[in-house]
């Protein structure tokens, strides 16, 4: 990988290993790199420990989504999902455990996969992407058992509400659809851009980030990032952030959100922006929190750069991992 390729690299997705000691990151060249957090955070960390311990070509197109199960790393490339055993990857054996393709209709262009989510209730994987549909795959046997149709443009993000047995999806068409996972029916459709408090027509209407926590939902994108109460289906707080947000997450009592702009924003539930912590990439695609291991509890941020910023403390960037 030459310096020019590094200059134009973007990191799209991240996932921590089940043991919490490793971080996998996918970039726009279809590569997945494995970083050792225990080495980078160790007392004798040096330049070299911030480089990946393993880099391998996983897919043809960019790796937009990564997800870890108890034993496997799932990666999504151009229209295909591959599973890699974590145990084998740590031993630097690169061989996909399996690769599956959802049943796509269009032929000219293979639709990309933008989001994946696991529903632990029935051990299934929801996959959303370029063909406007959510495909549900049974992880037991690898069969695509159902397709959720309804979005009119491609799907950006997915979120599972386990307690209510619901799946949420947000798309380019500006709608957040709530699906009943048992019946595969759309139970609700919220068109966020139609709410005057959220809408930002100068940007557009797409929903690019979506996350849920009990009765609350965070969504944003073209419209402002907003906190919704799901039982009343109404926005409760709007966050005054410029730029489009690409990922938001609840963390302890704050909301961490990233997107266009060179910072990680800390927001309070009430709608105030508490802090904006500067980081390396000019626009950020992915934010990940390592909850799998208490000693390597870090927040990592990747975007339009070959650097992945690591925050050991939420209030400042500690160092960067580099491709």
């Amino acid at each position: 990988m030459g310096p020019i390729e590094l200059l134009h690299m973007s990191v799209f997705s991240q996932s921590f290993s089940p043991c919490g000691k490793y971080l996998a990151a996918g970039n726009n060249y279809g590569e997945i790199a494995l970083f050792s957090l225990s080495a980078a955070l160790g007392p004798d960390a040096n330049e070299l420990s911030q480089k990946p311990i393993l880099t391998f070509a996983a897919h043809e197109g960019p790796v937009f989504a990564l997800l870890s199960t108890d034993s496997h790393l799932l990666s999504a490339g151009n229209g295909e999902i591959s599973a890699w055993s974590w145990a084998e990857l740590i031993k630097k054996n690169v061989k996909a455990a399996w690769t599956r393709r959802p049943n796509y209709k269009s032929s000219l262009e293979i639709p990309e996969i933008n989001a994946m989510a696991i529903n632990p209730a029935d051990n299934s994987l929801a996959v959303g992407g370029g063909d406007n549909n959510v495909h549900i795959m049974d992880l037991e046997n690898g069969v695509f058992k159902s397709v959720l149709r309804g979005h009119t443009d491609y799907i950006h993000c997915l979120s599972v509400r386990e307690r209510a047995a619901e799946l949420l999806s947000g798309g380019e068409d500006g709608a957040v659809r709530i699906w009943d996972t048992r019946t595969s029916q759309c139970v609700h459709c919220v068109e966020v851009y139609k709410y005057e408090t959220c809408a930002r027509p100068q940007y557009g209407k797409w929903i690019s980030c979506l996350t849920t926590d009990s009765d609350w939902m965070l969504c944003g994108g073209g419209p402002s990032l907003s906190l919704w109460h799901l039982r009343s289906m109404s926005p409760t707080s709007i966050f005054p952030l410029s730029g489009c947000q690409r990922q938001a997450t609840f963390y302890q009592d704050v909301i961490l959100t990233v997107g266009e702009g060179q910072c990680v924003s800390h927001c309070l539930m009430g709608g105030e922006v508490k802090a904006q912590i500067p980081c390396t990439p000019h626009s950020i695609n992915s934010l990940a929190i390592n909850t799998n291991s208490t000693e390597h509890r870090v927040v990592t941020v990747g975007g339009s750069s070959d650097h992945i910023d690591v925050f050991t403390n939420l209030s400042y960037r500690a160092f960067s991992l580099r491709f």
């Binding site: 799209f12 960019p62 690019s208 339009s304």
Partner: peptide
């Protein structure tokens, strides 16, 4: 164009 935007960063 097949599609005008694609992927998370459109």
């Amino acid at each position: 164009c097949l599609r005008t935007v694609r992927g998370p960063n459109r």
